[in-house]
Structures are given as C-alpha cells and as structure tokens.
C-alpha cells in the first residue's frame, strides 16, 4: 500500500468507514504485530499492546492530521509508546529467555539467515535493535524513523549505519 492509498483510507476511516479501517488493519497489523513481538518477545503481551495501540489510534483518529507522517508511522509511534509505558510499569526489555518468553515463531518464512540475524541482533544494544526493527520490520524510511525517535534525520542515518556495522561484525564467526 502506497502512502496515497493509505491517506485515502485514513480519510475514509475518519469519516466513519469501517471497511477502510479494516483495510488499514489488514495492511499495517502484520508489521506492527511483528514489531511488537520482536520487541516484547511475548505474544500475549504483544497482542495486548497491539489492541491498546489500535484502540488509542481509533480514539484519536478523528483528530489525526498527517503533517507529512503516514498513519503507519503514527501507529508505530503509538505502539512504541505503549511498550515504553508497559516497561515503565514493569521491567525493561530483557534478552530472550525461553523459560520466560515464547520461542521464536517457527513460521515457514524462517530460514537459516533469519536465525543468524536473530542471533547477531541479540548481541546489539537496545537502541540498535530498536532502530533495525523500525527500519526492517516496520519498513519505515529514515525521516519517519527520525520523527518516531524524535531525533535528527542525519542522526538516524548515522546510527543506522553504525548499527549495521555492528550487526555485520556480530555476524562474523
């Protein structure tokens, strides 16, 4: 879904079109849920956060103004905020622990490469992982990541470049 289609759907949803909102759900939820699962490592929690994110988004949807930011980025920002609020109540993001968390999903797309990447990302810092999630799971461009993280566009590029370098280093045996 390109940004223009997304904008039209948002307009329709704002005017009360449920079908448009359903289409937005169908397009954004796989990325958003993937992001939440990767962040929380907890499917149940991810579902709760997904639901909370959408509820908040729907409540605020009539007042939503794109201002150069598509609704998908807005939803990721809400989701990220929900995660932070959850961690503020409980504990910070912790490395994957099979005894505490769900095992990585054994879906059909998973290949040897993705497993390697998962292992490499475990060695990175929280900030680097967050950047890579927003870039490659949420599939957001640099400027939208900058808005979500509330940092400079150039800073996003630099940090992402460094995170990639560290991930590459972590991949080497």
């Amino acid at each position: 879904m390109n940004p223009e289609q997304e904008r039209i759907l948002v307009k329709k949803a704002q005017s009360g079109d449920r079908e448009a909102l359903g289409l937005l759900w169908d397009n954004i939820t796989p990325k958003l849920f993937g992001y939440l699962i990767n962040t929380t490592r907890d499917k149940a929690l991810a579902e709760d956060l997904l639901q909370a994110t959408w509820v908040k988004a729907i409540e605020a949807l009539p007042g939503y103004k794109p201002r150069g930011i598509p609704v998908s980025a807005w939803l990721f920002a809400i989701a990220r905020n929900e995660c932070r609020q959850h961690w503020r109540k409980g504990e910070r993001e912790v490395p994957f622990d099979p005894s505490l968390h769900d095992a990585p999903a054994k879906n059909t797309n998973e290949t040897e490469n993705t497993i390697l990447v998962e292992q490499a990302l475990e060695k990175l810092s929280n900030e680097d992982r967050e950047l890579l999630r927003l870039r490659y799971i949420a599939d957001l461009p640099h400027n939208q990541i900058a808005k979500i993280l509330n940092i400079n566009f150039v800073a996003v590029r630099v940090r992402l470049h460094r995170a990639l370098a560290r991930a590459q280093a972590a991949l080497k045996p």
Partner: peptide
C-alpha cells in the same frame, strides 16, 4: 539479510479476526 529478517518477522496475531 535484514530485509529478509524483517519480512520474516511480519505476522498476524492468532486471534486476528477476533481482535479486528
């Protein structure tokens, strides 16, 4: 590798329809 990894992470909740 990361693009492939990012796509592999996309998934829908088990109770997607219900949630929707």
């Amino acid at each position: 590798l990361l693009v492939e990894w990012g796509k592999s992470q996309h998934q829908i909740p088990q109770s997607n329809l219900e949630l929707k």
